[in-house]
């Protein structure tokens, strides 16, 4: 047994991108591995659940948990890791805000399961099999985790100490978090470990945004031949940079695409989508219904635009289903 601080990584409803971030630390990963003892990381190392269960409570210094919570197993693991860890980090947009899986909150189990297993044209399933909690196979009972109707963020399930934002977090952000952890420089509990300012602060195109911006129309990225040096909003493309926390160094913008808000809001904002739409309404639209409708015609999917990563963390959390459900 080493004296190095014990660290764990776990993934819930996620894509694996956050794991990639750890890998993207490249040679710095060796420093990390040298400084800590990774005691649980299902994707990379062969630890089993029961080994985790036998660890003393609080023996893990920090767990980095990515992915949203949408199955009973994920909920159990989150609770287990919370018990075993001194500090729990919500790692990446999914555990922080709900992430892309959070968009499932527009539906429920009853709609998702048939769509995925029966109606999807690319899924061959001639018997129409749909996963069940418990099934009998050759006389044995086989059980699967249950799927919740509503996707939740990590802090809606357990107490979270810190958040490392991003979809995925950049290697720099992760390193900074690890550095703060290992050197005892963590800020107040509950802090999101990225600057508490909007992305425009670090955007290379900031100067080119005019002071008086008033768009007659908002456009989607494919509708504009995007100039590589000018502020995207100034070009009429809906960039959520002004509403999004900084820290990624404007990676998407540097890739000539608008920010879609994966770092979430600043600490002063309760609902990312609500604020983002308020800001967009301030730069575009005219003075009457017709002008306003025209200005925002090119936003086909409001939830996907304003709550792409943050639906479960929003004030309403999910789409309201029909009465009676």
């Amino acid at each position: 047994m080493s004296d190095k601080p014990k660290v764990a990584f776990y993934w819930c409803a996620s894509c694996g991108g956050c794991e990639e971030t750890v890998v993207d630390l490249e040679e710095k990963l060796l420093d990390v591995v040298a400084a800590v003892d990774i005691v649980y990381w299902p994707v990379a190392l062969d630890f089993k659940r029961h080994e985790l269960e036998t660890m003393p409570d609080g023996s893990i210094v920090a767990t980095f948990l990515n992915g949203a919570i949408r199955t009973t197993e994920q909920e159990e693991m989150a609770q287990l890791l919370r018990k075993k860890s001194q500090l729990l980090f919500a790692f990446g947009s999914c555990s922080h805000l709900g992430g892309i899986p959070g968009l499932a909150n527009l539906w429920d189990r009853e709609r998702i399961l048939p769509t995925v297993y029966r109606e999807s044209p690319s899924t061959p399933n001639p018997e129409g099999t749909v996963p069940r909690r418990v099934s009998k196979v050759n006389g044995d009972a086989l059980s699967l985790p249950g799927l919740f109707d509503t996707v939740r963020t990590l802090d809606q399930v357990v107490d979270v100490d810190y958040y490392v934002p991003g979809c995925p977090p950049t290697p720099k952000i992760l390193l900074a978090a690890l550095d703060a952890l290992l050197n005892g420089k963590l800020p107040e509990k509950g802090t999101v470990l990225a600057p508490d300012q909007a992305l425009c602060e670090e955007c290379p195109r900031k100067e080119s945004r005019p002071e008086q911006l008033s768009l007659a129309e908002v456009k989607r990225p494919h509708q504009v031949l995007i100039d590589e040096t000018t502020c995207l909003l100034a070009q009429g493309v809906l960039c959520l940079g002004p509403a999004t926390r900084a820290g990624c160094e404007a990676l998407c913008v540097k890739g000539n695409m608008p920010c879609t808000g994966c770092f979430g809001p600043t600490s002063r904002v309760k609902d990312f989508g609500g604020k983002a739409l308020s800001a967009m309404a301030s730069v575009a639209g005219g003075k009457d219904e017709a002008e306003i409708a025209r200005a925002f015609e090119n936003i086909p999917d409001s939830v996907g635009t304003f709550y792409r990563y943050s639906l479960p963390s929003s004030l309403l959390r999910r789409k309201r289903l029909e009465a009676g459900r």
Binding site: L106, G273, G274, L277, S278, M280, A281, S282, A284, G285, K287, E289, I292, A293, A295, F296, I299, D301, S302, V303, F306, Y307, L316, R318, K319, R320, L321
Partner: peptide, 20 residues
């Protein structure tokens, strides 16, 4: 009030998609 009108327009659409 013009800003309120614009925000209301977008908000209404968002709420509609949220089943309200």
């Amino acid at each position: 009030n013009y800003k309120a009108l614009r925000r209301f327009h977008l908000l209404k659409r968002l709420l509609r998609e949220m089943g309200i």
